[in-house]
């Protein structure tokens, strides 16, 4: 378990016809403690997905570096995208097993499937699943590789409220079983307060660090909507610029 340092000096998209150079991220420096659950909150289109793609190594065209603090070893990253991104021609189980790095113990998969209520659906093809189930499969896949860093990109958007709450609870449950660093992107402040140890607010593009808040509500109280609501009101009245942004 190590802390993770993210330093993005500049991420810009080259000029295209009809538009100039687009600076997506500028001077963003984050430090994530080992096992910390961090929510990145920012307005839609502020470049949060871009940031996650940089961290995941999907985009290497930027100035800066991303490294684990002590060892400098490459991170093992689990990524839960906004859409489930399952291979439709492979079964649920195959989708998960394919993601496992070679030599990794596959045993936790059975447990994860069990917790997520997917044991019965292992041999199904993803097109036959509901969106909520597909999201849970994607969650299992991201957890199954036993990541040092888990990236989550608004994974519960477009789920109905009860389903989203249920999957959020499952997420916290499996995360507490095997704590690791989580970077969770959302534009929903209530969701962020429910989940995070720490909130980081990001500015509209060019994206940079705006503000951060530790969430001091005990985990056992997070399910109470009043607690979350009180925290949220206190936060917004203390920082009007945040409410302007969201």
């Amino acid at each position: 378990m190590t802390r993770i340092l993210i330093d993005i000096d500049l991420k810009a998209y080259p000029a295209k016809r009809g538009s100039g150079v687009h600076v997506a991220i500028k001077d963003l420096h984050l430090e994530l403690a080992a096992g910390e659950f961090v929510c990145l909150v920012g307005p839609s289109g502020c470049g949060k997905t871009t940031l996650l793609n940089l961290i995941a190594g999907l985009d290497t065209q930027f100035e800066g570096r991303i490294q684990s603090g002590e060892t400098g070893k490459p991170l093992r990253i689990g990524y839960m995208f906004q859409n489930p991104r399952l291979l439709p021609w492979r079964t649920v189980r195959e989708n998960i097993d394919l993601a496992l790095p070679e030599g990794l113990d596959g045993k936790p998969v059975d447990h994860l499937l069990d917790v997520m209520g997917l044991s019965q659906s292992q041999s199904q093809y993803p097109e036959r699943l509901s969106l909520g189930m597909s999201r849970r499969v994607a969650l299992v896949r991201a957890f199954a590789i036993q990541p040092t860093l888990l990236l989550m990109d608004e994974p519960f958007v477009s789920l109905d409220a009860p389903t989203a709450r249920k999957v959020r609870q499952l997420l916290i449950r499996v995360w507490q079983e095997r704590p690791h660093t989580v970077l969770f992107v959302t534009h929903d402040l209530r969701e962020a307060i429910t989940l995070a140890d720490r909130l980081i607010f990001l500015s509209p593009p060019p994206m940079s660090f705006l503000h951060e808040v530790a969430v001091d509500i005990p985990r056992s109280e997070r399910e109470k909507e009043t607690e979350v609501e009180v925290f949220r009101n206190r936060l917004i009245s203390g920082h009007p610029e945040i409410s302007m942004m969201l």
Partner: peptide, 21 residues
Amino acid sequence: RDLMEMAQAFQFKRWKTLRHV
């Protein structure tokens, strides 16, 4: 593209990507 990114994020090797994606 989404699936190709998924394969890349989960570090599928070349052959695995070809065969399964």
